[in-house]
């Protein structure tokens, strides 16, 4: 075993992995939420707004109450409320769910900036982390393996969601609503209600993802906190083929890609800073182009989905 102070390339790898776990959490929560929503046959493009709203409300509540976990809960509730709004409006006849998503993207960010103005200055308590590296004597390993508690929750949630969608009654109802609305109706379920509930649950998760941004990493609230993570997570669901486990791996990939930029900067490669900043968007676009097809519906796509038609 190499000495603790000299991990060599392993140190870089561990730093990127730790960074990936850190940065990927919002991607993970938003993509899991969107997967659930899209499985029911709706697209909620407004999760970017939900993410910002979640970040703001979590920060405000954590600051006012002193409890970061209460902040997480309220962020989820705010996300669910936005999901209810999206689901309710989209259930009306002749209303396009994608357009509603754009409207809620704008409303969510506007509302968060409006309500969050007084909370830019104060400092809120942060979420705790789990020291997965406690066994090691190496400070680098210990620092890299300080994993946020929410990441652990998300990592457990991904297989749980896969199992729930595949093996429970509720999962079957959601999938039926997403694959064949008429069949769901024939079974006696209200398609609108199932989709609205799925959108609410998806919004809850996206709100929790937002709380991570303000309460752990970067751990502050300001108006430039999220720069399209919510949007990239939605594109990521298409690449992950609506599979929660794939969402987990792809989120890690994105987290790693985003963590590589700051890592390069820390070893002195600081030029073209903004160009590296564009990398995640370009990567998303390339993946989106690669996973699209002009001829047939995408494998694994819920057939009622407007986005894949």
């Amino acid at each position: 075993m190499p000495p603790a102070t000299d991990l060599g390339w392993w140190g870089v790898v561990i730093a990127v992995l730790g960074g990936a776990a850190r940065v990927s959490t919002p991607y993970l929560f938003v993509s899991l939420g969107e997967t659930l929503t899209e499985k029911s046959g709706r697209v909620n493009l407004g999760l970017e707004g939900t993410l910002v709203m979640g970040a703001m409300s979590a920060y405000a509540v954590a600051y006012l109450s002193g409890s970061p976990w209460l902040g997480v809960l309220v962020a989820g509730a705010a996300g669910a409320a936005f999901g209810l709004l999206h689901g309710g409006v989209s259930t009306l006849p002749r209303v396009n769910d994608i357009a509603v998503g754009i409207a809620l993207f704008l409303l969510g960010t506007g509302l968060a900036f409006y309500l969050g103005k007084p909370f830019i200055e104060p400092v809120a308590p942060r979420l705790p982390h789990v020291a997965l590296g406690a066994w090691s004597a190496s400070p680098q390993i210990r620092a890299a393996l300080e994993v946020n508690a929410l990441f652990v929750v998300g990592a457990v949630l991904a297989p749980l969601l896969l199992w729930g969608l595949g093996h429970t009654r509720w999962g079957l109802v959601v999938r039926t609503a997403g694959d064949n609305a008429d069949a769901a109706k024939a079974l006696g379920y209200s398609v609108g209600a199932v989709r609205t509930l799925s959108t609410m649950a998806g919004g809850f998760l996206a709100g929790v993802g937002g709380s991570f941004l303000s309460l752990y990493y970067p751990g502050t609230w300001n108006e430039g906190l999220s720069s399209g993570q919510g949007l990239m997570a939605i594109a990521l669901v298409i690449f992950a083929r609506w599979n929660p486990i794939h969402c987990f791996w792809v989120s890690l990939l994105f987290g790693g890609a985003t963590a590589l930029g700051p890592a390069l900067q820390s070893v002195g490669i600081a030029s073209n800073y903004y160009l590296y900043g564009a990398a995640p968007y370009v990567l998303t676009l390339i993946l989106l182009i690669a996973s699209s097809s002009p001829r047939h519906a995408l494998a694994g796509a819920p057939s009622e989905l407007t986005i894949s038609k």
Binding site: L231, Y281, T284, L285, L288, S292, S293, P294, I307, S308
Partner: peptide, 12 residues
């Protein structure tokens, strides 16, 4: 020609 969703694409 590629079936890429134009809404997500233009937002990116």
């Amino acid at each position: 020609w590629r079936g890429v969703n134009e809404t997500i694409c233009t937002l990116l």
